[in-house]
């Protein structure tokens, strides 16, 4: 009998969305996904309560929220340890290393032809597997997590940056030649600005990789804090609401990280066709 109200909520929300989607205004384009998301949460809550699903299998959204609200200091400590210390510092170091490498090999077509296929190849590998090795080398604290993140983000950014440095067209290069501009002048005034959309593409792809690297590396050893540590221990204690609260933190952190990089991108590459308004 409890299936009926669940079905009713679903059909009602979907019907409402169908009507709103047909209007297709700016407001409904925001409303429709929000209603859909809210419906899923309500259905989740209803299903868990109606069928008395044990919280060790699937906690209800309200339980997750209660755990989130009740563990703010703990979650904040994990966030600082994993996201700020591990992921962010590793991401910054990896990105800087990739940019510097791209510029360093820019003058050598030989090195580019050698490094690019290897870079593309490595970008497709399960690099996360080096986590146990780096944890052995750099210890349990955030330094080993940052090292994993450096290796994970390095190649995607390198490949994008090299493509970006090659992205000027013949006309722009000819112009520089008629002004008899030197190598560094063309690099700073023409090729680096032209490479920015490519660089930011690489930076955006790697925000998620950085979080994954930092969290998963903690499964191989960590101090007694950190999101990966918390997830694996809370799973062991069957404290699923806390696990989901950590996942909520990871989702918020991932969206924020990506959003901030996108915001900087729109400031830096305001001139690119994809960013113009």
């Amino acid at each position: 009998m409890s299936a009926l109200p669940i079905l009713a909520v679903w059909l009602g929300a979907w019907g409402l969305n169908a009507v709103l989607a047909r209007l297709n205004t700016r407001l409904t384009r925001i409303l429709v996904p929000l209603i859909f998301g809210a419906t899923l949460l309500v259905l989740w809550e209803m299903i868990v309560r109606a069928y008395a699903v044990p919280s060790v299998i699937l906690p209800a959204p309200s339980q997750i929220w209660a755990s989130f609200a009740g563990n703010i200091p703990l979650l904040w400590g994990d966030f600082v340890q994993t996201i700020l210390k591990g992921a962010l510092s590793g991401w910054v170091m990896g990105a800087l290393a990739a940019i510097v490498t791209a510029i360093a090999i820019d003058r050598s077509p030989f090195l580019q032809r050698g490094l690019l296929p290897i870079g593309n190849f490595v970008a497709a590998l399960p690099i996360i597997g080096i986590a146990p090795i780096l944890v052995m080398w750099f210890g349990f604290d955030w330094q080993s997590k940052a090292a994993v993140v450096v290796v994970m983000v390095f190649f995607p950014i390198l490949v994008n940056m090299v493509a970006g440095l090659a992205a000027t067209d013949a006309l722009q290069r000819d112009l520089m030649a008629t002004w008899s501009a030197g190598y560094w002048q063309s690099l700073f005034k023409m090729r680096l600005p032209a490479a920015m959309p490519f660089l930011f593409n690489g930076l955006k792809i790697t925000t998620t990789l950085a979080l994954i690297g930092a969290i998963v590396a903690e499964f191989f050893g960590s101090p007694t804090r950190g999101m990966g540590f918390r997830i694996s221990t809370a799973v062991g204690q069957l404290d699923l609401p806390l696990v989901w609260a950590e996942i909520l933190v990871a989702a918020i952190a991932g969206s924020l990280f990506y959003g901030i990089v996108s915001l900087i991108e729109s400031r830096v590459t305001f001139w690119h066709p994809s960013q113009r308004r």
Binding site: T208, L211, I212, I215, V216, F219, G254
Partner: peptide, 9 residues
Amino acid sequence: TVPILAIAP
């Protein structure tokens, strides 16, 4: 943008 892999364990 979400590190889905974290839910694996």
